[in-house]
């Protein structure tokens, strides 16, 4: 019957579109892998992973990715130090204390915070936060890891807050009532019952936030500098993996050159790191959902 054939053709077309997402993942892996293999044809993988000097654009080239990795780590850790406690506190407040009225105002505003383009945060870090910090920390350079780290923390705060809040609200009422029945205050209930019960959900939120911080580009490209240094000092200019990719993309490095391939090798590392974190996060979330279903 022709009607049926039409139906089946449509289903096939829809399926192809669904498959496009798998194609995207495959595309990412293939594109990164091809150039990364070419890169490791010329540079030893050991040097790449253990070298502490990153100077692919200089005359004497070194391809040790550790300075970029460390720069990324420093900024991300600062961001998490800002975002995790504040995000958790907000989540506890919104989930356990806030009246419905307050939630209805605060949640959309937090979402706005998450929706601000990152280039705007970069501007804010460079022209407002860094000068502000310099008043207290005279040794702080104009480009540094501290200021973009703090601003990035502000950016990922809503992510930590809303995912943790979801996890806490999924904790069954019975658990809370049990604690109240024993005479616990709201704070004791929140900290000793709800947070531990929602722990895997909260951890998933934090890991996802870490993944977001590692992959964030524009804030660090604008405010952290472009000097790959092997240092954990947050007061001096550094360079992250993402900022390096931007730096090369802005210049006119010809295709097919080794310098050009470095961005794919760095991109591959970035992809693997975030991918692992994302998988871990969704695994934890699935486990959390199972616990309470």
């Amino acid at each position: 019957m022709s009607l049926r054939r039409g139906e089946r053709a449509i289903e096939a077309l829809l399926f192809l579109c669904a498959l496009a997402s798998v194609g995207t993942t495959a595309g990412i892996i293939v594109v990164l892998a091809v150039e990364t293999f070419a890169f490791f044809g010329e540079v030893s993988i050991v040097e790449f992973l253990t070298g502490t000097e990153w100077t692919p654009l200089f005359a004497t080239k070194h391809f040790g990715v550790l300075p970029l990795l460390l720069g990324t780590t420093v900024v991300s850790v600062i961001a998490l130090v800002v975002a995790v406690p504040t995000g958790l506190l907000s989540a506890i407040y919104l989930s356990e204390y806030a009246p419905e009225r307050v939630r209805r105002v605060v949640k959309p505003v937090l979402e706005i915070l998450a929706g601000v383009p990152t280039v705007v945060y970069g501007y804010f870090a460079l022209t407002f936060v860094t000068p502000l910090l310099q008043q207290w920390l005279p040794g702080l350079s104009g480009f540094n890891a501290l200021s973009p780290g703090i601003v990035m923390g502000l950016m990922i705060l809503p992510l930590v807050s809303s995912l943790s809040e979801d996890a806490m609200r999924a904790v069954p009422r019975g658990l809370r009532e049990g604690a109240y029945a024993l005479g616990a205050t709201r704070m004791q209930t929140a900290l000793q019952v709800v947070v531990p019960a929602a722990f895997s959900g909260i951890t998933a939120a934090v890991i996802l936030a870490a993944s977001r911080a590692i992959g964030e580009t524009m804030i660090v490209a604008i405010a952290a500098g472009q000097q790959p240094r092997f240092t954990a000092n947050p007061f001096v200019p550094i360079e992250t993996m993402t900022a390096y990719i931007v730096q090369v993309s802005l210049g006119d490095t010809p295709q097919g050159t080794l310098e050009y391939r470095t961005i794919f090798a760095v991109g591959m590392l970035l992809f693997l790191m975030t991918f692992a974190l994302n998988l871990l996060s969704s695994w934890l979330r699935a486990r959390f959902r199972e616990e309470y279903n």
Binding site: V246, L270, T274
Partner: peptide, 12 residues
Amino acid sequence: NLAAVPSIIYGL
């Protein structure tokens, strides 16, 4: 998982 891949990777 794609929803959480950094945007710069999409650029590459």
